[in-house]
Structure formats: C-alpha cells, structure tokens
C-alpha cells in the first residue's frame, strides 16, 4: 500500500488551525493590554511562573505554541507558493525546521521553569 507523509503534516496543521482560532485572539488581547501598559494580573511574573511551573500549564503552553507554530509554518509554505515562490522543497524544509526548532525551544524553556 502506498504510504503518504501527508497525514503527519496535516494533523498538526488542522489541530493548529483550531487552536489558533480558539486561543490566539484572546492571548493577543492579553499581551496587547500589556503593550498598552495595563499588564493583567495573570501575566505578572509570580502568577505566570506558577502557571508554567505546573504540569497542566506546561501542557497547555506547549500545545498552544507548538501547534500554532506548525500550522503557521504549513500555511506560510502554501502562501509562498501562491505568491510565486515555487522552490517548494526549500521553503517547506526551512519552515518546518523552524517550527520544530521553535517547539523544541518551547519544551526546553518550559522544563527550565
């Protein structure tokens, strides 16, 4: 039976699209408040550190960041192609490697907290 690597790319893409839709707008809203000088209590060092120190917090943060990164990388690959950049293999390699690097970095930073 012919095997395809597409499901491996597609599952995190679809999951990431859903995570971006549900979670990223409110997270952007929170850091926007910080950008405007009104840091929400939950974004202060004590509470943010406590959240990221727990297993549930680590899982939530890693899932949101890694899936959103992967989904964005996949969409950026398609966007590059649509804008006329046809070196798809190079673009795909660079973007997927960047997404994996970002996810690994996220895991490393979380484990340090």
């Amino acid at each position: 039976m012919a095997k395809s690597h597409k499901p491996v790319v597609w599952f995190p893409f679809a999951a990431g699209g859903t995570v971006i839709a549900f979670c990223i707008p409110v997270i952007v809203l929170l850091t926007s408040m910080a950008a405007l000088g009104h840091v929400p209590d939950g974004l202060g060092y004590e509470r943010m550190h406590a959240f990221a120190a727990g297993a549930l917090g680590k899982l939530v943060i890693f899932s949101v960041v890694a899936l959103s990164l992967w989904s964005s990388a996949h969409r950026l690959r398609c966007t590059c192609f649509d804008f006329g950049l046809r070196a798809d293999k190079v673009v795909a390699t660079v973007l997927y490697l960047a997404a994996v690097a970002g996810s690994v970095a996220t895991a490393v930073y979380l484990l340090r907290i």
């Binding site: 943010m48 970002g102 970095a105």
Partner: peptide
Amino acid sequence: CIFIGAYCVLLVVGLQRLA
C-alpha cells in the same frame, strides 16, 4: 499566518525570558 507565526515567535521569546 505571517502575523500569527511572528506572534508565536514572540511567545517563545517570552517563555525564554520567563525561564
């Protein structure tokens, strides 16, 4: 997706600073 991707990078940087 360009802005979402860039924002995710910002989140990773924020985590690094938190750590």
